Amino acid sequence: MPTHTHLIMACHLTGIYDVNRNTTLADDSYELVQAWAESVALTNLRGIIFHNNFSVETCKRYSNAHISFKKVYYNPEFNPNVFRYFVYRDYLAQCTDPIQGVFVTDVSDVTLAQNPFEDAFFKENQNTLFCGDEPKTLHNEWMIAHAEHLRGQIQDYQAYEERFAKEPLLNCGIFGGSFPVFFEFLKQLCEIHDRYNRTNKTAYTGDMGAFNYLARTNFNENLRHGFPVNTVFKAYENDRMDCWFRHK
């Protein structure tokens, strides 16, 4: 049986145009989350998939000792990439399980290779925020465009961009840590989106911008990214087993 002290969570929201994929995902296609769910089970962890459109039959069929489904009602004030953080925050704020460690990930392009909570590196760094990264720097054309809205809203955003321009780009498709660190980060992340990202009318979600800004400005001294957290982003290293997560 999976332990209830450690948790992996993901969101699968459909029926809304996905700006990253340039499409609208099908409502009841379990295949989109199947690899994630099976990898969670193989590592003997407990995973929750928050969703808005899976059928009752699909949830019943694929629920097991490792995977559960929880229905949420999408708030169109935020794009799906951002809305998921409020889902996680609200669930954990009400959860009565004695959770010691949490990771949240993208659901359709991330799988687990190892149980991160059993790794000595995780156990020895209880004050650390762990996250994914990409083989590029913060200062790149996509991030400059992505952060247009936040740059105009947050007073020190441009100064942060200049300070960390040459640092690796962090990826919010994977992040976690011990519960106190993770939950504090999550609460602050929601505060940023609630305060600054509601009025975002650009073609970009703001999720990567807010994530990198918060991680670098408030958590940088206790930040770990890259190996062993994640494989090389978009290198499709599907056979690697030496990292905790495989990300595309």
Rank of each mutant, 00 (worst) to 15 (best):
P98H: 07
P98Q: 10
P98I: 06
I99L: 15
I99M: 07
I99C: 07
I99K: 05
I99N: 03
I99P: 02
I99G: 02
Q100F: 04
Q100C: 10
Q100Y: 02
G101R: 00
G101W: 02
V102L: 09
V102N: 05
V102C: 14
F103N: 13
F103Q: 09
F103K: 08
F103M: 14
F103S: 06
V104A: 04
T105F: 06
T105M: 10
T105N: 06
T105A: 11
D106A: 14
D106P: 05
D106V: 13
V107F: 02
V107G: 10
S108C: 13
S108G: 09
S108K: 15
S108W: 03
S108T: 14
S108F: 01
D109A: 10
D109V: 10
D109W: 04
D109R: 11
D109I: 07
D109F: 05
D109P: 04
D109K: 11
V110S: 08
V110I: 15
V110H: 03
V110P: 04
T111M: 12
T111Y: 02
T111K: 13
T111W: 01
L112C: 09
L112N: 05
L112W: 03
L112Y: 01
A113Q: 10
A113S: 15
Q114Y: 00
Q114M: 13
Q114H: 01
Q114R: 14
N115L: 08
N115D: 12
N115S: 12
P116K: 13
P116A: 08
P116T: 11
P116W: 03
P116R: 12
F117P: 08
F117T: 11
E118P: 01
D119K: 12
D119F: 05
D119L: 08
D119H: 11
A120S: 10
A120M: 04
A120R: 03
A120C: 02
F121K: 12
F121Y: 06
F121V: 13
F122I: 12
K123T: 06
K123S: 09
K123I: 11
K123P: 01
E124P: 01
E124W: 01
E124S: 12
N125M: 10
N125V: 11
N125S: 13
Q126H: 04
Q126N: 07
Q126D: 09
Q126S: 13
N127R: 10
N127S: 14
N127T: 14
T128R: 09
T128D: 01
T128A: 07
T128Q: 05
L129W: 06
L129R: 11
L129H: 03
F130H: 08
F130I: 15
F130S: 13
F130C: 15
C131N: 05
C131D: 03
C131W: 02
C131S: 13
G132R: 03
G132V: 08
G132W: 01
G132D: 03
G132C: 08
D133S: 15
E134I: 07
E134L: 07
E134S: 08
E134T: 07
P135R: 11
P135E: 09
P135T: 11
P135Q: 12
K136C: 11
K136S: 13
T137E: 02
T137D: 04
T137P: 02
T137Q: 13
L138S: 01
H139M: 10
H139F: 07
H139D: 15
E141N: 07
E141F: 03
E141C: 03
W142N: 02
W142G: 00
W142P: 00
M143I: 12
M143H: 10
I144P: 00
I144A: 05
I144K: 01
I144Q: 07
I144R: 01
A145P: 00
A145S: 07
A145F: 00
